[in-house]
Simulated scan of single mutants.
Amino acid sequence: MARVAEIRVGTSGWRYPPWRGAFYPPGLPQRRELEYLSRRVTSIEINGSFYALQRPDHYRAWAAQTPDGFVFAVKGPRFVTHLKQLRDVRVPVANFLASGVLALGPKLGPLLWQLPPRMRFDAQRLAAFLDLLPRTTAGAAALAVEHDERLEFRALVETDADRPLRHALEVRHESFRDPAVPELLRRHGVALVLADSAGTWPVFDEVTAGFVYVRLHGADELYASGYTDAALDSWAARVRGWRDGGRDVFVYFDNDAKVHAPRDATSLLRRLA
């Protein structure tokens, strides 16, 4: 029997003070917010990993708080994407992979690499980075062994099973409109993120992998505006089309500022039920 493609919808992160008492019930302890949200969406982006290396016990705790079948996407560190801008990043990527990502086990979904708006397309640099990325959890564990001394006493360099590992790339500079970009991503099986950002950054709408990765940053105002019923109907139709074409689909709402993200995510899931 052919495998049925999956749809995952959720939010970018879960720990937002404005959600407390608005989306999260009044009095819900902060430590139970992930547990609460993960019963209402089917995936969440871990974005704390973008700002700092996490610890294996953090990832283990997050996995334990979520239901069976739940999946996390994990955002790669800004040290790799924004500070180093993909230059000479073998050890920083190894540090990220050794920081506990593999502790998610079967709940580890795609790794997201978000490039800064100022970063222009450089074919040689991007190709070298894509060549570096492991395509399996066993490959990730092998690269994680190359971590530096900062992870010496808290590294996790083992995986409970060898599974495919997927990557998505979000670009924000118009120079990535180059036809060489989707060609390069297809060669490596990396998804080009379809990001809706209220016109702040260019939209790249091209399928380059066996899965689709969508980030919805706000319909009219970046991070702050929600999506209308008509807009959610339209996104639902697109998601079904990708799914019916045999591709897994991951959709994350990043319009968190006014509590739109969890509400839009649950509304989209209702349309897709």
Rank of each mutant, 00 (worst) to 15 (best):
E206Y: 03
V259P: 01
V193G: 10
P202T: 02
E221L: 12
V181E: 00
A180I: 00
A155H: 11
A198G: 09
H217I: 05
D160C: 15
T159Y: 03
G245T: 14
H188D: 03
A231Q: 15
L165T: 01
G199Q: 04
A198L: 07
V203L: 12
R238E: 12
R186Y: 00
A191Y: 04
D254P: 06
G245N: 13
S175P: 12
H167L: 03
L184V: 07
A231V: 12
D220A: 15
F211A: 01
T159I: 07
Y227D: 10
R163F: 03
V203C: 08
T228F: 11
E183D: 08
S234G: 13
E174F: 12
A161K: 11
G218T: 08
H188T: 08
A209R: 00
V193E: 10
R172K: 11
V259L: 08
D254K: 04
R238K: 08
W242I: 10
V207W: 07
G218F: 06
A198Y: 04
R166G: 05
E152I: 15
T159M: 05
G199L: 04
Y213L: 06
V212F: 08
A191C: 06
F176S: 01
R238N: 08
R166V: 04
D254E: 10
A168L: 09
A224K: 12
E221Y: 10
V171Y: 00
